[in-house]
Nucleic acid binder design. Sequence first.
DNA 1: ATAATGACTGGGG
DNA 2: ACCCCAGCCATTA
Length: 107
Amino acid sequence: MAKRQFDAVYAMVQRIPEGEVASYGQIALFLGWPNGARTVGWALRALTSGSGVPWHRVVNAQGKISLPNPTRQRALLETEGIVFDEKGRIDLRRFGWRGPDAVDLEP
DNA sequence: ATAATGACTGGGG
DNA sequence: ACCCCAGCCATTA
């Protein structure tokens, strides 16, 4: 059932290291869709529990959680060491993922 | 094939 | 800083 495009999204999200976050637009850009941020959100929305995809590491460009009920996602991120400010935003300068090329040093 | 959907984004008020 | 609006894209119905 996994559509090719969605699958690409999941694969990219899987690359986000623990303790870091990426924006929808960022993921889309890495996949080659300059304006496909919404499509990324679509793919994640279609995700089912137990998919093994770290969907919680994806937030909007404002560093904020886009889900109607951010509680669960926020808890997961805090578990990984992500820090939220008083307005529930993440400092992307600090926790933002650099990209798929930035981290590739596994022996 | 057309229309609607939505976990987005950037710009303007 | 916050709220609203129009543009954009792949998937679904």
